[in-house]
Computed example of a mutant assay.
Amino acid sequence: MSNPAADVARVQSEAAGWFARLNQLSITTDELRDWRDWKRDEANAAAYAKVEAAWAAAGALSKRPAIQAETAEILQRRPSQTPAHVTFRRYGLPAAITATVVTLGVAVAWLNFQPQPSFTTRVGEQRLVVLDDGSRVRLNTDSVLRVRFRKAERRVILARGEAFFEAAHDAARPFIVEADGTRVHAIGTKFDVRRDGDAVRVTLLEGKVKVAQKDTAGSATLIPNQQLTVADGRVSAPHPTDAAEAAAWTSGRLTFRSVALEDAIAEVNRYAAHKVVLDGPPALGRQPITGVFDTGDTKSFADAVGVLLDLSAKSDSDGVLRLTPRAPSRAPSA
């Protein structure tokens, strides 16, 4: 059964938290999008407007000696002793004015506001994260994930890189992954989301997900072993794929089946501190290769490609592995 008083208190607390966050020196575009989404609710917008108005009113009062003294006393107390709402009847302030001192609660929220967790991986690193709801997320190389769980939904933001999700089932709280304006809605499912520049690729292994671009009307639903890409504000049609192969990176493997050499090198380099560079004609980069390689093992990859395509693999002084066509052997002179 709903508790109206508790709901009002929650909305007021969220409004104070958003006001504190938005007035920091640094805020990300993803956080601004979250705030905009939160504010679409009329009750949220009204609560935020009250916080702004109270803060503005308190600014005019802050120079009064009585309020300065009381504020200093409050700020010297431990957080557990600081009341959320303070009145100053002993100074004879009118009720309409004392009501604005609720902004001291906003100041406390500003000082004590703790953002929800974020997780990162370095180049070549993978990381398994278990979220509060039991969902499991495996972050791929050079990735950033931010958690934004709320009462009515579980949202995570893939700010960079790639992640494999095993969303715990909770019909009352949909699991949403957001990546550069793309939203993936899922309930109890396994799927992969990858950001490549301005494009987002979604691959489904189990369950069912709906993919949408929030600034357009485009959307599509994936079933297992399907994949789609969102780019330039457009959601592509789902197409068949080997989802297990696409998610092979979660077990530390890269699987290539007739993949252009230049694309394979780009994938291998995602995990490598020392990159592989192909020096040769454009046609060489389009040569297809097939094989299974360990993530981060650039030397084994370069050696294998060298054998497959008759290339020389040599390391520079800075650690870069260069692949170049072997010089044709000269026939012995008569």
Rank of each mutant, 00 (worst) to 15 (best):
D294Y: 07
E262W: 05
N112Q: 14
P328I: 09
L104C: 04
P325G: 06
G207N: 08
I176P: 00
A49V: 02
V123N: 07
L222K: 05
A264D: 01
A46F: 06
G233Y: 07
G285W: 00
L131T: 01
A266M: 03
T290K: 05
D37R: 02
D279K: 08
Q24D: 13
L254Q: 01
I27L: 03
S329L: 15
P282V: 02
K63R: 13
P240N: 08
N112Y: 10
G181L: 03
A16I: 01
A220M: 11
E14W: 02
S329Q: 15
A172P: 02
A49I: 02
G291W: 02
A273Q: 12
L61R: 05
W110P: 03
A168S: 13
G134D: 08
I27E: 00
V102E: 07
F164M: 13
A220Y: 06
I187H: 12
A231Y: 08
R201N: 11
A66Q: 14
G252Y: 01
Q126N: 10
H274M: 06
L111R: 15
G218I: 03
V202G: 10
R136V: 11
A95K: 14
I74G: 04
S118P: 07
D7C: 07
K39Q: 14
I27F: 01
T250E: 04
A220K: 10
A45H: 08
L22W: 00
D294L: 12
T121W: 00
G233A: 07
A199L: 09
S312D: 14
G218R: 10
T103Y: 09
L228E: 05
E245F: 02
K299I: 12
L204F: 10
G197V: 01
P4D: 10
T100K: 05
S258N: 15
K275T: 06
H239S: 14
F175G: 02
E267K: 05
G134E: 08
A217G: 14
E267R: 06
A45F: 04
Q227D: 11
I97E: 01
L323N: 03
D294M: 11
A212F: 08
V102S: 10
S329W: 11
L158C: 05
A237G: 10
R173C: 08
Q24T: 12
P115M: 03
A6S: 08
S300D: 13
Q287L: 09
V8H: 06
T221E: 14
V268P: 00
A9N: 06
R195E: 05
F88P: 06
I67A: 00
N269G: 03
A231T: 09
T189H: 04
L22G: 01
R270L: 04
L158R: 00
